[in-house]
Computed example of a mutant assay.
Amino acid sequence: MPERNLDFGKFGARGIKGHEAVARQLDALAGYIATPITARRGLLARLHYLTRTDHARAAAREAGFTATPRTIRAWLAGTRSPSRANLAAIEQAYRAVRRENVARYLLARLNREGRGTRVEFHPLNQSQVTRSHQRAVEYRTLNVRHWDRIVAAWAADDDAALDTAWVDDAVVDLGSQWGQYEHVTHIGFAA
């Protein structure tokens, strides 16, 4: 793999790994609760999401949320407030359960019955790189038809698997220039 062993940013280039940009875009499509968990409304929304059904409670337990029903009732009633550690556990469990719940929907939306989704690759930022060290990279588009491994890795919150799936299922289709798009400023897709 041509670009994986280079020291990115050595000459001042800026950007993020492509799979991180894809994860951000999928997170945006997942539609998380916008109100922060530190606000009472955000806490209540997350607790209701995690405790609404037996399936949600089981998924929350599997994601590491182990508060007792009595404690949850006290939080919902407002008689007690969760600690910072509990707030972090609630947020982490909420994101894990939400990803699991929307993964199948996102997969169908991105695959579009085999037609795929158009992806935009915005190249890395070379404004701080001296002219002699800059390379020619341009805005590219590509139609990605196989999202199964990408969405599964995102839903499992497995960064290494997402990187591998993104490179193997999408980026290599850019041809011989795929290594230039390992780091990008943004990945966009209208799904």
Rank of each mutant, 00 (worst) to 15 (best):
E3D: 06
E3R: 11
R4C: 03
L6D: 07
D7F: 15
F8M: 10
K10Q: 14
F11V: 10
G12Q: 10
R14T: 13
R14E: 15
I16D: 03
I16Y: 04
K17I: 01
G18K: 06
G18P: 01
G18F: 10
V22T: 06
A23M: 06
A23R: 05
L26D: 00
D27L: 01
L29N: 03
I33W: 00
A34I: 11
P36A: 11
P36W: 09
I37N: 01
G42T: 09
G42M: 09
L43Y: 03
L47S: 02
L47P: 03
H48Y: 13
H48C: 08
Y49E: 05
Y49H: 12
L50P: 04
L50Q: 02
T53K: 13
D54C: 00
H55Q: 15
A59D: 12
A59F: 02
A60P: 06
A60S: 12
A60W: 03
R61N: 08
A63E: 03
A63I: 05
T66W: 12
A67R: 04
P69T: 07
P69E: 01
T71Q: 15
T71I: 15
R73Y: 07
R73F: 01
A74W: 02
W75N: 00
L76R: 10
L76H: 04
L76P: 00
G78A: 06
T79P: 05
T79N: 12
T79C: 04
R80G: 01
R84L: 13
N86E: 15
N86D: 09
L87A: 07
L87F: 09
A89S: 12
A89M: 05
A89W: 00
E91Y: 08
Q92C: 04
A93P: 03
Y94T: 06
R95D: 02
V97G: 05
V97R: 05
R99A: 06
R99G: 02
E100S: 08
E100H: 09
E100C: 00
N101E: 14
V102T: 13
Y105W: 14
L106Y: 05
L107A: 01
R109E: 08
L110W: 04
N111H: 10
N111Q: 14
N111F: 01
R115L: 14
G116E: 12
T117D: 06
P123T: 08
L124A: 08
L124R: 05
L124N: 01
N125R: 12
T130Y: 08
T130L: 10
Q134W: 11
Q134A: 09
R135T: 15
R135N: 07
A136N: 13
E138N: 13
L142C: 11
R145L: 10
R145W: 01
R149F: 00
R149N: 08
I150G: 04
V151K: 06
V151L: 09
A155S: 11
D157P: 00
D158Q: 14
A161S: 12
L162I: 10
D163L: 03
T164V: 07
A165Q: 06
W166P: 02
V167C: 08
D168K: 12
A170K: 04
A170P: 04
V171C: 10
S176F: 10
S176L: 12
Q177K: 13
Q177F: 06
W178R: 09
G179F: 07
G179R: 08
Q180G: 09
E182R: 10
H183A: 00
H183T: 04
H183S: 00
I187W: 02
I187G: 01
F189S: 09
A191W: 08
